[in-house]
């Protein structure tokens, strides 16, 4: 079951709108596929991105996944706890955000139901 309070992407990210800002993370399906996560390369605060761009990288021992934003805008916060403990993503992917962006959600997103259907394939 994926949380119903947020949107999803075809690239296995989640986007949660809170107070007009967007928290972005990776789904439980993504962290399982990657395996033990060893490093997260986060953007800098103040960096700007447009929807469809990659803004972070999540690394396991033998894979690296680019993380894309569907939000066009500016990074206002990053999850610094991931620097010390990237395994947080393995433990609780839906409560571990990567970054918070301020801007407009103008990329392609999926509803929780659509995403569930996608990963069930």
């Amino acid at each position: 079951m994926v949380p119903k309070d947020r949107k999803y992407t075809n690239n296995d990210e989640w986007i949660l709108e809170e107070n007009g800002q967007f928290k972005i993370g990776i789904t439980d399906y993504a962290q399982t596929a990657l395996g033990d996560i060893v490093f997260v390369d986060l953007p800098g605060i103040g960096d700007t991105f447009t929807a469809g761009q990659d803004f972070a990288v999540v690394e396991s021992v033998k894979a690296a996944a680019e993380i894309y934003t569907q939000v066009s805008g500016k990074v206002v916060a990053v999850n610094e706890a991931l620097d010390a403990d990237p395994a947080l993503l393995n433990q609780d992917a839906y409560n571990t955000f990567l970054a918070v962006l301020e801007g407009a959600l103008d990329g392609e997103v999926l509803t929780p139901e659509e995403y569930e259907a996608k990963i069930a394939e």
């Binding site: 060893v38 490093f39 396991s60 021992v61 033998k62 894979a63 690296a64």
Partner: peptide, 13 residues
């Protein structure tokens, strides 16, 4: 170690 930086994993990135 830290292999995920390297060409065999990151390819053109």
């Amino acid at each position: 170690t830290l292999s995920a930086r390297e060409q065999h994993i990151r390819r053109e990135k």
